[in-house]
Structure formats: structure tokens, C-alpha cells
Simulated assay, not measured.
Amino acid sequence: MTTGVTTLTTAPRWRGTDFATQVAVLTGRSLRSLVGDPRMIFLSLLQPLVMLTLFSQIFASMANTPGFPSGVRYIDYLMPAILVNTAMQSALQAGIGLITDMKNGVLARFRSLPIRLGSVLVARSLSDLVRTTAQLVLMLLFAVTIFGFAPAGGVLGTLAALALALVVGWGLGWIFLAIAAWLRNAEMMQTVGFLAMFPLMFASSAYVPVAGLPAWLRAVAEVNPLTYAVNAARSLALAQPVTGVVGALVASAALAAVGGALAIRGFRRPLS
């Protein structure tokens, strides 16, 4: 008598896609949601253009004041600072976008899927980096065609300043993602963001030379980290001795590391 032996084979359990695929898919989702709202595209592109127009006209007389770099037009002096400031403001939007996803139920559905929660944060960071790049490129085209922006560093110097602004904005974006993951309130997030950004923007070398500021404000500007980022971007665009680029890159990497760790920790808390 032959005894039949039945061998049961168990199909391997599907554990989801790898981290890179998750990031790519989620980044595409964020970009599609952005492109799908023409109003958001228009407003996100209009804001930096308005800022460039106003500041280039309001502060144009600074080019004739003592202490201003000789032979440099104000638009060439201003534009690198506008790139850095716009990247910083876009970083705030990364945090607000994360809170929006928390409130509309998208993240609750993500938690039921076999994906790493960290991939959601990385995807948000990358999608906002793409949006910021589009903003800065449009601003450069606008500055060149309307205001005659033509720095001594030429195309290469301008692209280097653009890249530095993106790195700085990306690093700050992780800080705002961390704040968003813990606050989970869009109104409070905007308040905290603006309270942090305005002193950084105006108590710096962004719009006027530090030497022309009152003594107390000059002391603040000289320790303001945004001053170093702006000076580095400006030196690249104006073909001046490059200082502060390595420091800006290291600081941005440190902000991304700290912000990423805090963002993931706050993001793992149960949604209320």
C-alpha cells in the first residue's frame, strides 16, 4: 500500500515594495496633487515674483549708499538673497503640506499599508524640492528678462547660487517637517514659521550690507545663519572670493539630520 504524502507549500508573504519605490510613488502622488490644482501653482509662483518686484524697487537706492559693493547693481546684489529667502519660505510650505495630509485622512490610509512611514516624509521633502526648483528657475528668468539680472559670475555662478539655495531650503524643510509632525496644526505652524523667518530674513545681509545696519542689528546679523547662506550664494553669483559655502552645506546637512530624526519620531505618534 502506497501512502500518499501531500506537501503543502506556503506562498511567501508579500511585504510591500522597497523604500526607494515607495519614495518614488509617494513623490509622484504629491506632485500630481500639486499640478492638479492650478490655483496653488499660480499662487506659489506669484508670491516670489511679487517679492522680487517689490524689494528690487524699494531697496534699489541702497546701491548708492556708502558700504555697498562698488560696481555691483542692486538687482545683482539682491537676487541671490531672494533665491535663499524663497527657498526658506518654500520650506515652511513643506510642513503645512504635511499637516494637510494628516488632516484629510491620507496618512491614516498610508498607516494601513505595508510602507515605511519615513518614506512619506522623504517623498514630501522631495516633492517640495521640485516645487521650489520651479519657483527659483521662474524667478531667475523673470529677473533676467525684466530687470536685466546679469551677475559677474555668469550662468555657472548663478546656477551654483541656485543649487546652494535649494540645499539650504531642503535642510530647513526638514526642520519645518519636524515642527509640523509635532504641532499638527496648520495655523500654529504658520505662526511659528513666520515668527522664525522674519527675523532671519530682515536681520541679515539679504537686502542691505551688514555694515550699514545699526550697531545692535549688525550684531544680530553677524550671527544670523541666513547671513552666511546669503553671503555664500552672493559670492558665487558675483564671482567674488567664495566664503561660507562649505559651512552652509554642513549646516544644511546637520539641520536635515536633526529635523529628520525629530520628524520621524513625531510622525510615528498616533493620529488624533
Results as ranks from 00 to 15, higher is better:
residue 114 P to E: 10
residue 142 F to N: 02
residue 4 G to W: 11
residue 40 M to P: 00
residue 62 M to N: 11
residue 165 A to W: 06
residue 246 V to Q: 05
residue 51 M to T: 10
residue 139 M to K: 01
residue 101 D to F: 13
residue 57 Q to P: 00
residue 235 S to D: 02
residue 62 M to Q: 13
residue 196 A to I: 12
residue 205 S to C: 05
residue 264 I to G: 01
residue 60 A to H: 13
residue 227 T to S: 13
residue 237 A to C: 03
residue 152 A to D: 12
residue 209 P to K: 05
residue 226 L to E: 01
residue 81 A to H: 09
residue 244 G to A: 07
residue 228 Y to I: 04
residue 152 A to G: 07
residue 61 S to F: 13
residue 197 M to I: 10
residue 249 L to Y: 04
residue 66 P to M: 08
residue 65 T to R: 15
residue 218 R to P: 00
residue 10 T to H: 14
residue 201 M to F: 15
residue 115 I to T: 12
residue 140 L to P: 00
residue 183 L to Y: 06
residue 259 G to K: 04
residue 141 L to T: 02
residue 54 L to Q: 03
residue 173 G to D: 11
residue 48 P to M: 03
residue 102 M to I: 10
residue 11 A to R: 15
residue 133 T to K: 00
residue 80 P to S: 15
residue 271 L to R: 04
residue 108 A to M: 13
residue 239 A to P: 01
residue 98 L to P: 04
residue 199 P to G: 04
residue 262 L to Y: 06
residue 234 R to P: 00
residue 38 P to W: 01
residue 30 S to N: 15
residue 252 S to H: 01
residue 107 L to Q: 11
residue 26 L to C: 02
residue 211 A to W: 05
residue 42 F to H: 02
residue 238 L to D: 00
residue 187 E to Q: 15
residue 223 V to D: 01
residue 263 A to H: 02
residue 33 S to V: 09
residue 19 F to W: 13
residue 163 A to D: 05
residue 198 F to I: 13
residue 57 Q to T: 10
residue 35 V to Y: 12
residue 270 P to H: 07
residue 237 A to L: 00
residue 125 S to L: 08
residue 110 F to K: 05
residue 187 E to C: 11
residue 26 L to N: 03
residue 47 Q to E: 07
residue 87 A to Q: 03
residue 163 A to V: 13
residue 252 S to M: 02
residue 239 A to F: 04
residue 206 A to I: 05
residue 204 S to Y: 01
residue 227 T to E: 01
residue 211 A to L: 11
residue 134 A to Y: 01
residue 78 L to H: 06
residue 182 W to C: 06
residue 103 K to Q: 14
residue 226 L to N: 02
residue 174 W to S: 12
residue 40 M to S: 11
residue 129 L to A: 09
residue 127 S to N: 05
residue 80 P to Y: 13
residue 256 A to W: 06
residue 230 V to T: 01
residue 132 T to F: 00
residue 80 P to K: 14
residue 34 L to M: 06
residue 49 L to S: 09
residue 195 L to V: 14
residue 142 F to S: 03
residue 218 R to Q: 14
residue 25 V to W: 12
residue 245 V to A: 04
residue 244 G to M: 03
residue 201 M to K: 03
residue 99 I to T: 10
residue 258 V to E: 05
residue 248 A to N: 01
residue 199 P to D: 08
residue 215 A to E: 14
residue 160 A to Q: 15
residue 83 L to M: 15
residue 143 A to K: 08
residue 143 A to Y: 05
residue 23 V to H: 03
